[in-house]
């Protein structure tokens, strides 16, 4: 059976894809920034923060890492209105993705923090720096450098997570592909286009993270 491919059929829908790309990029950038900040905060609490709040962070991290993202998203979008919190689809998507990335990033960053050589803490202490100053100025940057590749992969996964958000009508790339194939019945072409767009964006994101690393971490990783 010959399959006739007709990408020309997609041309009319280019603006739909363009919107999808914009939404996916927006979600990834906003969520990447906020999720990373949340991850750093949680990793700090879990490694050296106040002991009284450590269990709460642990519960949050384990709850998120051991339940499906789709359920987390549905809970926020469909579940929360029952207690009076109604969010638009973009707000719900951003919240769900930040909460999700925060938990995974916490564990990745924690690994980087725990690999800090003891000598770095002792040198900081002998220079009269407080624990918080030590974390901020001495520990954090090399810790992020150690786990940057893992963090990059997690960010790519989060970007793909935005595809799930099409389920609550967030108009991302996946939403665009679904929409298009329901109109012109060209599913094959629509999903190939979506695949290529995701591939291009993921490679771009990885490259962006590599370049960010060059700015943030001027030195290669310390041996000791």
């Amino acid at each position: 059976m010959a399959v006739g491919l007709d990408f020309g059929a997609l041309a009319d829908y280019a603006p739909v894809f363009a919107k999808g790309v914009a939404v996916t990029c927006e979600l990834t950038l906003v969520v990447g920034g906020l999720g990373l900040a949340l991850g750093i905060l949680c990793a700090w609490v879990r490694t050296q923060g106040p002991r009284v709040i450590r269990p709460f962070v642990s519960i949050y991290v384990e709850l998120i890492r051991n339940t499906p993202f789709l359920i987390q998203l549905f809970f926020i979008f469909f579940g929360l209105p029952a207690v009076g919190v109604s969010l638009g689809e973009m707000e719900a998507a951003i919240l769900a993705m930040v909460v999700n990335l925060g938990a995974y990033a916490c564990e990745i960053i924690r690994a980087g923090i725990e690999a800090t050589p003891r000598g770095q803490y002792e040198a900081s202490a002998s220079l009269a720096m407080s624990r918080l100053q030590t974390f901020r100025y001495v520990v954090l940057r090399p810790a992020l450098q150690r786990i940057w590749p893992a963090l990059t992969s997690q960010l790519v996964i989060v970007m793909f997570g935005s595809a799930v958000c099409s389920q609550i009508a967030v108009e991302d790339i996946t939403f665009a592909a679904n929409f298009i194939q329901s109109r012109n019945f060209r599913a094959f072409e629509a999903y190939i286009a979506a695949t290529l767009l995701y591939l291009a964006l993921a490679l771009l994101l990885r490259q962006g993270m590599r370049m960010l690393a060059l700015v943030l971490f001027p030195r290669r990783r310390a041996v000791r």
């Binding site: 050589p117 000598g119 770095q120 040198a123 220079l127 090399p142 030195r219 310390a222």
Partner: peptide
């Protein structure tokens, strides 16, 4: 002040 056997400079 203290100086250590392993230097312990901040690598970054």
């Amino acid at each position: 002040g203290m100086i250590f056997q392993g230097f312990n400079l901040f690598p970054h």
